[in-house]
Design a protein around this nucleic acid. Sequence first.
DNA 1: ATGTAC
Length: 463
Amino acid sequence: MGNKLKGKDLIKLGFPKNNSINIALGQINRYRKREKKERILEEAKEVLLNPGKFQNNPIWGKVVEGLIKPVEVKLHQLKNTRAPFTIYGENEIDEQAKYQLYDALKLPIAVAGALMPDAHVGYGLPIGGVLATENAVIPYGVGVDIGCRMCLTIYPIKTSYLKGKKHQLENILSNHTKFGMYETHDKKHDHEIFERQEFNDIPLLKRLKVKAFKQLGTSGGGNHFVEFGKVTITDVHNEWNLDIGEYIGVLSHSGSRGLGANIAKHYTYLATKQCPLPKNVQHLAWLDLNTHDGQEYWLAMNLAGDYAKACHDDIHYRIGKLLGSKAVAKIENHHNFAWKETINEKECIVHRKGATPASRGELGIIPGSMTAPGFIVRGLGNDKSLNSASHGAGRLHSRRKCKEKFTKSDIKQQLKTHDVTLIGGGIDEAPMAYKDIKKVMNNQQELVEVLGTFTPKIVRMDK
DNA sequence: ATGTAC
């Protein structure tokens, strides 16, 4: 009965009647419902007396914000001019993706933007879109799969193993990688990421911790993969002093699983509430980084990014052990993320939604398709691209179109031609669904230089 | 992308 803390109780104490106490109240009742009401009321009194003390408190921070400086909710209009931008390979990019970028460039917080040569339409910001903003982060400018990333490990193993030990390698992928929405790794070593304070401080993350633990080291679905292939190093001056030549590589592509998806969902919801925009651009709603929710998203996003890295590390560690070989190089990068970077001498939030960071000297991996090589790249630090490059070949056909257009035997034929073994994989992930990676690389010669290639030979995807 | 929906 009177055990549950209600808005009335807080208002009686003297809290102002506004929406921000409701949001916070929801959090208190959700995450501290086992505590005695009296205890929370005592704490609430102290919050009123000394709000500043609770400014960064994970539970009261939001209430305090409502007391001291409530988030101003107002309908923002788009400007009628675009912030400066550059498009790479514009003849290969569909018009709708360009219009999505143009809209984003008219946001009052936009500073600059760029479109990578693999760009195509997305939700909010296009995939392959880069957007720099001022003191604000757009959850849909990062994307649903926060920290989706690539990781390539190079082993000093003869490439003849790809044929000679084909069945063993197939077994490693079949038995030691986990694909599909529901897959988990239940018995595994702990990971230091689960000691992170964010899992205790942020109520949403507290709820997601168990799920994240179960899913560590899984790959998920969609376009995610783990594959063995042939690495060809072509740059004598490579960072690892590797001889020019061929090696075996393990390449993985996946993100932050349910953890990141739920973070994206939660903060997108908050952003659309706090930042109403004209309907056609409502998915570009942002969180001001000076607000409680903005700061919380930043912490949660960074945790999801580190978690995605932890998943790749787990996958590569396990495979490395099974291979019984010591890696000679590892290249990895996020391609769905936001960073604090300096643009025109101003600190900005640079969103890369399906774009590879490519500041001068920065290494990355840009995959092709299962029948086309990926590229090990070194950034050239091109300002106009906001230090970015493509994150792959980019889709040519939508998932739906693939199912209409291609058959299983079409895919089989392609795999045979390129001597690729596929475990799992659906028609919507047909290699023909992707643009020509060579064309894409040609369109970004000013953005990255190539150190080597990775040619997939044994590929595992979700069914 | 994700236990497809505040």
